[in-house]
């Protein structure tokens, strides 16, 4: 017998009595008077930065400044300028020195400062992780209170990959001292468009 069947048979032989699936009542969950403010407070408490801008064009000048400082920048947002079409071909070796990446994300979560980024938004799965500075862009109206509302709004199975990202990479593995910038981005900025 294959191990698959052996395992499934053993589980079937030992299956506990039926327990009903609980109903998760969203009205029992915390709400925030000002989700934006809560989101900003949390992101800042985990080492990230939140910038409120009236329109996405306000970010363009920053990109220009970075480019003229001859930093390695990748923009994945067509509203901000040209997006190279070879992005998903770039390897880790090619991206090793990536300074900043700009990515349009789906939504932000007020309770924990996380931002949902899908594969089609990041273009290349490595980009949000291998860069030094991660810049994510969301609309203010897309800040939800908790993870419950977040999962209501997204469909995790339509694309091959997606991630909630909350602030910059961090570790506390040495004596519980918090160090920002373990393997992923050392800085995370969330632009929020009013």
């Amino acid at each position: 017998m294959s191990s698959r069947n052996k395992i499934l048979n053993a589980i079937a032989a030992h299956q506990p009595d039926q327990v009903a699936m609980p109903v998760i009542h969203h009205e029992q969950v915390i709400t925030f008077e000002n989700p934006f403010l809560q989101f900003k407070t949390i992101v800042e408490s985990i080492g990230g930065k939140v910038v409120l801008v009236p329109t996405i064009q306000f970010i363009q000048s920053e990109i220009q400044n970075n480019k003229s400082a001859s930093k390695y920048i990748i923009n994945t947002v067509s509203e901000l300028g040209d997006v190279p079409d070879n992005l998903n071909k770039l390897t880790a070796a090619a991206l090793e020195k990536l300074d900043t990446v700009y990515i349009r994300a789906t939504l932000g979560v007020a309770e924990n400062g996380a931002v949902w980024v899908s594969e089609s938004q990041m273009k290349n799965r490595l980009l949000p992780f291998i860069c030094e500075h991660l810049v994510l862009i969301i609309n203010q109206k897309d800040i939800v209170a908790t993870m419950h509302q977040a999962y209501n709004k997204i469909d995790i199975s339509t694309e091959g990959f997606g991630a909630f990202i909350a602030g910059p990479s961090k570790t506390a593995d040495i004596e519980q001292s918090l160090v920002i910038g373990a393997h992923g981005a050392k800085n995370a900025t969330i632009y929020i468009i009013e």
């Binding site: 924990n112 400062g113 908790t146 990959f161 997606g162 991630a163 990202i165 909350a166």
Partner: peptide, 25 residues
């Protein structure tokens, strides 16, 4: 996942969520 990602990091380290919650499909 909403329930589990809300409880996991809070219980583990007191973070509201881990920095990365990566969904592989």
């Amino acid at each position: 996942l909403s329930v589990f990602l809300r409880i996991l990091a809070r219980s583990a380290t007191g973070q509201a969520i881990t920095t990365y919650s990566s969904h592989f499909h």
